[in-house]
């Protein structure tokens, strides 16, 4: 996989996760994405970078935002984008994940963007195809483009990532976003805190270079960035948490709990938000502090960069193998 210098200083064939990427590679992706932010704000957003290339968005899990973001990214670069979602695929008819991959592979796509509910499944699929694969979220494992778009948002707002104190709050246990962000932020030199009830803190996470807190006020003390995570309704049935009202009372982000954070602390959320569950509406809509819409904007730029770089690497890769 790690063969050749790679386009824009990113040497990998696939983007399967943040774990294992070094600061130079992460910076390469962010720098390239940065260059697309302005283009996306122009009236004419189209480029021909991916002209003639085929991108398949293969989603085994419901998604509107991420899929749309990838679709836009591909189309703005002039590629042909096909969406396949689980409801319409052959998986329901008994075809295995690998069969699906092999079938699609035979159609010669250039990039497969894959989301799947099982951790590790995207890597498994990547081993069976010739094209580049982008992990758009696998189970509770990784969601690398989300971490990259968060990093780009932070870098643009704060001017740096290194040395910042970042709090990630809420359902860490079930969150691939949290895991990718922990890898990225610690790799880039930020100090990461996790704040959640103990039932939502995975065992042994301290070994990933983070500090664990059970109290929002304590954990948010002096933080530059507050990242909230989405809390799924099915976690509130008394297995992990007793109720919505108890969760919001102790862990929902409101101005009172935010007091200890730095005055200009940035508030982030990967969306979609549950207002009144993990975040108070007032805070979510605070134009000066909330970066939530900017995150969505950066998502398209980051995905354009990832598609461009992996496609370029693929050509390099094929030429070497001729």
């Amino acid at each position: 996989m790690n063969d050749g210098p790679g386009a824009f200083g990113f040497p990998h064939k696939h983007l399967l996760g943040i774990e294992g990427l070094n600061p130079i590679e992460i910076t390469a992706l962010l720098d390239r994405a940065e260059s697309y932010v302005e283009q996306n704000r122009q009236a004419d957003k189209k480029k021909a970078v991916l002209s003639g290339r085929t991108i398949i968005n293969l989603f085994f899990e419901d998604s509107t935002r991420t899929r749309t973001s990838f679709e836009l990214a591909g189309k703005r670069l002039g590629g042909d984008v096909i969406n396949m979602s689980v409801a319409t695929s052959s998986v329901k008819k008994g075809e295995t994940l690998i069969d699906t991959a092999m079938t699609l592979n035979a159609m010669h796509p250039d990039v497969l963007v894959v989301r799947h509910p099982d951790s590790g499944s995207v890597k498994l699929l990547s081993e069976k195809v010739n094209c580049a694969v982008i992990n758009a979220g696998d189970g509770q494992h990784e969601h690398p483009t989300q971490a990259l778009l968060d990093a780009l948002t932070i870098r643009r707002r704060m001017g740096k990532i290194q040395g910042l104190r970042v709090a990630i709050c809420g359902d860490i246990l079930h969150s691939r976003v949290a895991r990718s962000n922990i890898h990225l932020l610690t790799t880039m030199g930020a100090r990461v805190r996790l704040i959640a009830p103990r039932t939502l803190i995975p065992t042994g996470i301290e070994h990933m270079g983070v500090e664990v807190f059970n109290d929002m006020r304590e954990g948010l003390e002096d933080c530059d960035i507050v990242m909230m995570l989405r809390l799924q309704k099915e976690r509130m049935d008394g297995n992990y948490l007793p109720s919505v009202r108890e969760f919001f009372h102790f862990f929902g982000l409101d101005y009172a709990k935010l007091e200890g954070a730095k005055p200009n602390a940035l508030i982030m959320h990967p969306g979609p938000m549950n207002r009144g569950v993990e975040i108070d509406s007032e805070v979510a809509d605070d134009f000066g502090r909330s970066a939530i819409h900017e995150q969505v904007e950066m998502g398209v730029a980051v995905r354009m960069a990832a598609l461009e770089i992996l496609t370029a690497n693929l050509e390099e890769h094929l030429q070497r193998n001729l």
Binding site: G238, P242, H249, F250
Partner: peptide
């Protein structure tokens, strides 16, 4: 500890 002493769902311990 559990709602209704049912032994299944955690009660609102914090509140």
């Amino acid at each position: 500890v559990t709602k209704g002493l049912g032994g299944k769902e955690i009660a609102e311990l914090g509140l």
